[in-house]
Amino acid sequence: MYTFLASFTVQPEHRSDFVEVALKTGRDSLANEPGSEAFTVVADEADPNRFYLNETYADEAAFQAHAEGAYFKAFFAEASQYAEGPTWLMRGNVLSQPA
């Protein structure tokens, strides 16, 4: 699995706009993009203007397909008007151990 954590800093008057578009992107991606496995929107407890997206894909190719797709493009078309980011905090492949 390929996963990442990215942060965005949002203009205070657009916090609810960011949450709405991020949640919509997650719903649409999970429902319609093969290989999309998890899409979590997290509000920073110390900074109300900072949000994190934690996403997981079957592999890096599935993430690249997402990044080239309509939902990703629509998210950035809107969010870039009032949010700075992404700041990539972590990207990589999940390592698992035998049970």
Score class of each variant (00 low, 15 high):
residue 1 M to R: 11
residue 1 M to V: 08
residue 1 M to I: 06
residue 1 M to G: 09
residue 2 Y to P: 03
residue 3 T to H: 09
residue 4 F to N: 04
residue 4 F to D: 05
residue 9 T to P: 09
residue 9 T to S: 15
residue 10 V to P: 02
residue 10 V to N: 01
residue 11 Q to L: 14
residue 12 P to F: 08
residue 14 H to I: 11
residue 14 H to M: 10
residue 16 S to G: 09
residue 17 D to Y: 08
residue 18 F to N: 00
residue 19 V to E: 13
residue 20 E to S: 15
residue 20 E to I: 10
residue 20 E to C: 08
residue 21 V to D: 00
residue 22 A to C: 02
residue 22 A to M: 04
residue 23 L to Y: 05
residue 23 L to Q: 08
residue 25 T to R: 00
residue 25 T to V: 01
residue 26 G to K: 05
residue 27 R to K: 07
residue 27 R to I: 04
residue 27 R to A: 02
residue 27 R to W: 00
residue 27 R to T: 04
residue 28 D to T: 07
residue 30 L to W: 09
residue 31 A to M: 01
residue 32 N to A: 08
residue 32 N to R: 12
residue 32 N to M: 05
residue 33 E to D: 09
residue 33 E to S: 02
residue 34 P to K: 09
residue 35 G to H: 14
residue 37 E to W: 13
residue 39 F to E: 06
residue 40 T to Q: 05
residue 42 V to I: 07
residue 43 A to P: 06
residue 43 A to E: 06
residue 44 D to K: 11
residue 44 D to P: 11
residue 44 D to V: 09
residue 44 D to F: 11
residue 44 D to Y: 14
residue 45 E to C: 15
residue 45 E to D: 12
residue 48 P to G: 04
residue 50 R to W: 04
residue 50 R to D: 05
residue 50 R to S: 07
residue 51 F to R: 00
residue 53 L to Q: 01
residue 54 N to M: 11
residue 55 E to F: 04
residue 58 A to R: 07
residue 59 D to A: 15
residue 59 D to T: 11
residue 60 E to K: 09
residue 61 A to D: 07
residue 62 A to G: 07
residue 62 A to I: 09
residue 64 Q to F: 03
residue 64 Q to R: 06
residue 68 E to F: 14
residue 69 G to Q: 04
residue 70 A to S: 09
residue 70 A to I: 15
residue 71 Y to D: 01
residue 72 F to G: 00
residue 73 K to Q: 04
residue 73 K to N: 02
residue 75 F to T: 00
residue 76 F to R: 10
residue 78 E to N: 12
residue 78 E to W: 15
residue 79 A to D: 01
residue 80 S to I: 01
residue 80 S to P: 01
residue 81 Q to C: 08
residue 82 Y to W: 02
residue 83 A to M: 02
residue 85 G to K: 11
residue 85 G to E: 12
residue 86 P to H: 07
residue 87 T to I: 13
residue 89 L to A: 13
residue 89 L to D: 13
residue 92 G to F: 03
residue 92 G to A: 04
residue 94 V to L: 10
residue 94 V to K: 15
residue 95 L to Q: 09
residue 96 S to T: 12
residue 96 S to C: 12
residue 96 S to H: 10
residue 97 Q to K: 09
residue 98 P to S: 11
residue 98 P to F: 13
